[in-house]
């Protein structure tokens, strides 16, 4: 464990807690894409298959349980909660996220580190995580206005993967045999997808104006 990875995990944890807090306190999911949340639940479900078979550390197991619990409860809130679900913008959240899942499955079957069920599912979860934010970014483009908590949520989500990139660089130089091209490339693609959002987020923060994404 290094400071970059710990900071990345904490930022990631904080991003889901910010989202859960927002939905739980104001009983609204306005501006949040259910599709992105479903994709994240799928990412965690396929990545943490080994949660009961391979014990790595208490920290690792606890964090996996928190991420699984929070992502599925966010999906539950938006789908089932009688008040929250009314604020879900079904007409705007139209990204066909099934079109993201299939290519990721095919790519995971073609490019992986080891052709086993667990490894292919793990690789699938990496590819899916890289593109899972797309429905959310499309929704933001459509609804144009971003409320603070949603903006913070996306910023933290992008920041966590950027910190992971620093973690991979650190591990590459400090641990021999630590080479995971698949992880590095999908993590880089994921972070690049946030790049334009970061640009507008930073400028709105600098000029202290409401965050507006261009049409």
């Amino acid at each position: 464990m290094n400071i970059f990875r710990l900071a990345g995990d904490m930022t990631h944890l904080f991003s889901v807690l910010v989202l859960l807090l927002k939905i739980h306190t104001i009983k609204s999911c306005a501006g949040i894409s259910l599709k992105t949340q479903e994709l994240y639940a799928l990412v965690f479900a396929t990545r943490y298959l080994d949660i009961f078979t391979d014990y790595i550390s208490l920290y690792n197991t606890c964090m996996k349980l928190i991420f699984l619990g929070s992502s599925f409860s966010i999906v539950w809130y938006i789908r089932r909660h009688k008040i929250v679900r009314r604020s879900y913008d079904k007409e705007q959240d139209t990204f066909r996220h099934h079109f993201l899942i299939l290519p990721c499955i095919i790519l995971a079957l073609l490019i992986n580190e080891k052709f086993t069920v667990k490894e292919v599912m793990w690789t699938f979860s990496l590819y899916l995580e890289a593109v899972a934010i797309l429905p959310q970014l499309v929704l933001l483009q459509r609804t144009r206005n971003i409320d603070n908590l949603t903006g913070q949520y996306i910023f933290l989500l992008g920041a966590y993967r950027s910190l992971y990139i620093l973690n991979w660089i650190y591990r590459y130089f400090t641990e021999q045999h630590y080479v995971h091209w698949i992880t590095w490339i999908s993590g880089l693609v994921q972070t690049l997808l946030y790049a334009d959002f970061f640009y507008y987020y930073f400028h709105s923060w600098k000029n202290n104006e409401k965050l507006q994404l261009p049409a």
Partner: peptide
């Protein structure tokens, strides 16, 4: 070794 096989990152 088994360690690197197991993905130790979240």
């Amino acid at each position: 070794d088994a360690k690197t096989e197991n993905h130790d990152e979240l």
